[in-house]
Amino acid sequence: LQPDEERQLFHDLNRLGKKVDTNLALQFDNSNPVNLFIKERLMEELGLGVVETDVKSWADDDGRIVRKDLVAVNAILLLNRSNINGATPLMIDGRTETGVWFWSAVRDIEGFGEERAREKTVAAQPVVLKALAKLVYDFSFSNRRPDDGDDLTERLLSSLNDVDFSHGNPMWRYYNLNEEERRAEGLAGLSSYLPLDDTGNRDIGSHQGDFMRFGAKHNDIYPILGDMIRWKLNLPSRRQPLQ
């Protein structure tokens, strides 16, 4: 911020009680280790593009990630939490190299980080990134991680381009298809990976025009997207006991 902007911000906060925009607050928080990881490893070292304002129209997407979305994805990736509040260096110790590996693999997904990325790939939608982040956390860092967790993370991150992240992939529309359509699209086996239909919200989004737009209830949606990716890459199902 320029000096006059800093003075205006000071005035607004202290005299008007204005709430600081989430992206702005995160930008200036250098005490949180996850924020430092984002700044030093992802932005400066990896060159990941970050934008401070939400993208209102997908046509205006320049490929950069909204900061608050980037923070939310890393909260899942490194902490298995919905936010980074109270994170300490010890909590992410030994995890940041895997974090860089994760974002390097994501960056290589076709269409990701490009102009109008959200129109080119569903991987540009934060809920899909959360699904991938949760898989890495479960395989690499969870207290219940499988014995071959490192191998599973390797298989996942080295095979992301084997997943069709295009908007036209019928897998994303699984819940909008009937049984005959699922069989015709080669999705019959997917049901064994997904939660039972009577156990929660299955409205993960809809295909609107040429685009698959996932819904706003991310906590309900990203575990299901993770199950779909597990199935596609022949990774262990959440429904099978850990070995």
Rank of each mutant, 00 (worst) to 15 (best):
P236H: 03
E179S: 14
G47W: 06
E154C: 08
W101D: 12
F10W: 12
E154W: 10
S191H: 10
G149N: 02
E40S: 07
D69S: 11
L187P: 01
R7K: 14
G200P: 03
D150W: 07
T121I: 02
A117S: 15
Y175E: 08
S191N: 10
A123S: 13
D4H: 14
R173C: 08
Y222M: 04
D21G: 08
E154T: 14
R155G: 11
D12G: 04
D4A: 13
A105S: 15
V163W: 01
L160V: 07
T88Q: 13
P3C: 10
S158M: 11
E181R: 08
A124I: 05
E45W: 01
L242Q: 12
L129Q: 15
R202W: 05
A133D: 08
I92N: 04
G200M: 05
V34C: 02
N30T: 11
A124E: 14
N178G: 05
N23R: 03
V136Y: 05
E179I: 11
T199K: 11
L42D: 08
E97I: 08
I38Y: 05
D138L: 09
L132D: 06
A72W: 02
N35V: 01
D148Q: 12
P3S: 09
D151G: 10
S31F: 09
N143L: 10
G189W: 04
Y193M: 07
R183Q: 12
V50S: 11
L187D: 03
D93H: 13
M228R: 00
S158W: 06
G63H: 09
N32D: 11
P236Q: 03
V127L: 09
L233T: 05
W172L: 03
S191T: 12
R173K: 10
Y175D: 10
D93P: 00
K18W: 04
I109G: 06
P33D: 07
G200L: 03
R202E: 06
L36W: 02
K19Q: 10
T153I: 03
G226D: 00
K56W: 02
K134G: 11
A188V: 07
R202H: 15
R107K: 15
Q240E: 15
T53D: 14
V106I: 15
I76Q: 12
